[in-house]
């Protein structure tokens, strides 16, 4: 049985997008083939103008189980949003 290819995660930025979005994964022997295959599989309908491929093994992800503890600090800091500060109607440009 031939050697198994590494797994790559594929991120695409659309024409009107600001950030690359994760669209799926694929196996490929190297980065060049990963980009080519990602183009063939994930952009058949003009989904993107830019492709990033990252070896899945290089991705470090937060654990779903840690979600509440990890993101707790921002729950009580709603003053980070402008809407926390109502401004008088007659005051402009704030």
């Amino acid at each position: 049985m031939s050697k198994e290819w590494p797994l790559w995660e594929v991120f695409i930025r659309s024409q009107h997008g600001l950030a690359h979005k994760h669209v799926g994964s694929l196996h490929a022997p190297d980065g060049e083939m990963a980009i080519n295959n990602a183009r063939d599989v994930y952009t058949r309908r003009n989904e993107g103008v830019s492709i990033w491929v990252v070896r899945a093994a290089d991705i470090v992800a937060s654990s779903p189980a840690d979600k509440s503890a990890l993101f707790e600090p921002s729950n009580s800091k709603i003053y980070r949003h402008p809407t926390f500060f109502p401004m008088p109607e007659e005051v402009r440009n704030l």
Binding site: S2, K3, W5, P29, D30, M33
Partner: peptide, 16 residues
């Protein structure tokens, strides 16, 4: 198709 898959791996290793 095995030769093609094996060639891709060989090429990747050579390039690296």
């Amino acid at each position: 198709g095995a030769w093609f898959r094996d060639a891709l791996v060989a090429h990747a290793e050579k390039k690296a």
